Lab assay of single mutants.
Amino acid sequence: NKFNKEQQWATYEILNLPNLNEEQRKAFIDSLKDDPSQSANLLAEAKKLNDAQA
Protein backbone atom coordinates (compact mmCIF):
# COMPACT_ATOMS: atom_id res chain seq x y z
CA ASN A 1 0.00 0.00 0.00
CA LYS A 2 1.06 3.53 -0.80
CA PHE A 3 1.33 4.79 2.77
CA ASN A 4 3.47 1.84 3.78
CA LYS A 5 6.02 2.67 1.06
CA GLU A 6 5.95 6.38 1.93
CA GLN A 7 6.30 5.56 5.62
CA GLN A 8 9.28 3.26 4.98
CA TRP A 9 10.97 5.87 2.79
CA ALA A 10 10.36 8.67 5.29
CA THR A 11 11.67 6.50 8.14
CA TYR A 12 14.82 5.72 6.15
CA GLU A 13 15.35 9.38 5.27
CA ILE A 14 14.81 10.56 8.86
CA LEU A 15 17.25 7.96 10.19
CA ASN A 16 19.86 9.38 7.83
CA LEU A 17 19.45 13.08 8.62
CA PRO A 18 22.80 13.93 10.25
CA ASN A 19 21.78 16.90 12.41
CA LEU A 20 18.86 15.44 14.36
CA ASN A 21 19.49 14.12 17.84
CA GLU A 22 18.14 10.73 18.93
CA GLU A 23 15.19 12.27 20.74
CA GLN A 24 14.10 14.24 17.67
CA ARG A 25 14.59 11.25 15.41
CA LYS A 26 12.51 9.05 17.71
CA ALA A 27 9.72 11.64 17.92
CA PHE A 28 9.45 11.87 14.12
CA ILE A 29 9.48 8.10 13.71
CA ASP A 30 6.85 7.65 16.44
CA SER A 31 4.69 10.20 14.61
CA LEU A 32 5.16 8.28 11.36
CA LYS A 33 3.96 5.10 13.07
CA ASP A 34 0.95 6.91 14.55
CA ASP A 35 -0.13 8.44 11.24
CA PRO A 36 1.55 7.06 8.11
CA SER A 37 -0.63 9.30 5.92
CA GLN A 38 1.44 12.25 7.19
CA SER A 39 4.74 10.74 6.02
CA ALA A 40 5.52 13.42 3.44
CA ASN A 41 4.70 16.27 5.85
CA LEU A 42 6.69 14.72 8.68
CA LEU A 43 9.68 14.17 6.41
CA ALA A 44 9.51 17.81 5.29
CA GLU A 45 9.43 18.96 8.93
CA ALA A 46 12.35 16.69 9.82
CA LYS A 47 14.39 18.05 6.89
CA LYS A 48 13.63 21.64 7.94
CA LEU A 49 14.76 20.92 11.50
CA ASN A 50 17.84 19.11 10.20
CA ASP A 51 18.78 22.13 8.07
CA ALA A 52 18.13 24.56 10.93
CA GLN A 53 20.50 22.57 13.16
CA ALA A 54 23.26 22.28 10.57
Rank of each mutant, 00 (worst) to 15 (best):
W9V: 14
W9S: 06
L20S: 00
S31M: 10
A52T: 11
R25G: 02
I29K: 02
K2I: 15
R25P: 00
D51V: 09
L15W: 08
K33A: 14
D35Q: 08
A10Y: 07
L32G: 01
I14K: 00
D35H: 13
I14M: 04
P36M: 04
Q24K: 03
W9T: 08
A46Q: 00
A44I: 08
P36E: 03
Q38V: 06
N50Q: 02
S37I: 06
E6H: 04
E6D: 13
L49V: 10
I14G: 01
K26T: 12
I29V: 07
Q8R: 07
D34R: 09
E22Q: 12
L42S: 04
S37Y: 08
I14D: 02
Q7E: 15
F28D: 00
N50Y: 01
L17A: 02
A46D: 00
N16P: 00
L20P: 00
D30N: 10
D51Y: 08
E22S: 08
L15N: 14
E6K: 02
Q8D: 04
L42T: 13
L42Q: 07
N50S: 10
K47V: 13
N19E: 04
A40E: 06
N21L: 12
A44Q: 07
E23T: 11
Q24F: 02
D34V: 10
E6N: 03
S37T: 07
K5S: 14
N16E: 08
N16L: 09
N41G: 08
A52P: 03
E13H: 10
D35L: 12
E13Q: 10
L32S: 02
T11H: 15
S31Y: 07
N16K: 08
A27P: 03
F3Q: 15
P18A: 10
N50M: 01
D30W: 04
Q7I: 13
Q53T: 08
S31H: 11
A40V: 13
P36L: 04
D35R: 06
E6Q: 04
Q7M: 14
K48H: 05
S37P: 05
D34S: 12
A52L: 11
N50R: 01
K2W: 14
N41W: 06
K48Y: 08
D30R: 09
A44M: 09
K26E: 09
N19M: 11
L49D: 02
N41Y: 12
N16R: 11
Q7T: 08
N4Y: 14
K5Y: 04
L32R: 00
K47H: 08
F3E: 15
N21F: 10
S31A: 12
A54I: 05
Q7S: 09
E45T: 08
L32F: 03
N16A: 07
E13P: 01
E23Y: 11
L43Q: 04
I14T: 01
E45V: 09
A44S: 14
E23S: 12
N50G: 03
P18L: 04
L42N: 03
A54S: 11
S39E: 03
N41P: 10
K2E: 15
N19Q: 05
N19K: 03
K33Q: 14
N16Y: 05
E45I: 11
E23P: 08
Q38G: 07
S39V: 13
I29Q: 05
W9F: 13
L15Y: 04
Q38S: 09
L17D: 01
N19Y: 13
A54M: 06
K33Y: 15
K5G: 13
E45Q: 10
L32M: 08
K5Q: 14
D35N: 14
L20W: 00
I29S: 03
A52R: 13
K33T: 13
A44D: 09
A40D: 06
F28I: 04
Y12E: 15
W9R: 14
P36Y: 03
P36S: 04
K26D: 07
Q24H: 03
Y12T: 12
Q7L: 15
D30E: 13
L17Y: 05
P36K: 03
S39Y: 15
Q24A: 03
L49N: 03
S39G: 03
K33F: 15
S31L: 11
A10V: 11
Q38I: 07
L42K: 07
E13R: 05
N50I: 01
N1S: 02
S31W: 10
W9K: 14
A54R: 11
E23F: 11
T11Q: 15
F28M: 05
Q7G: 06
L49K: 05
E6P: 02
N16I: 07
A46I: 01
P36R: 02
I29W: 04
K2R: 12
D30G: 06
A40R: 13
A44F: 08
I14Q: 01
Q53A: 07
K5T: 15
E23Q: 09
S31T: 09
A46R: 00
A46P: 00
L43A: 13
F28W: 02
N1Y: 00
P18K: 07
Y12M: 10
E22T: 12
E45F: 06
F28A: 02
E22H: 10
L49P: 00
P18Q: 08
L17T: 01
E23L: 11
R25W: 02
D51G: 08
F28H: 01
Y12N: 14
K33W: 14
L43W: 07
P18D: 04
Y12S: 13
L17F: 05
A52W: 12
D51P: 01
S39W: 15
K26P: 00
E13K: 07
E23R: 12
N21E: 08
Q53P: 04
L49Q: 07
S39K: 02
Q8W: 07
K48L: 13
L15V: 06
N1I: 04
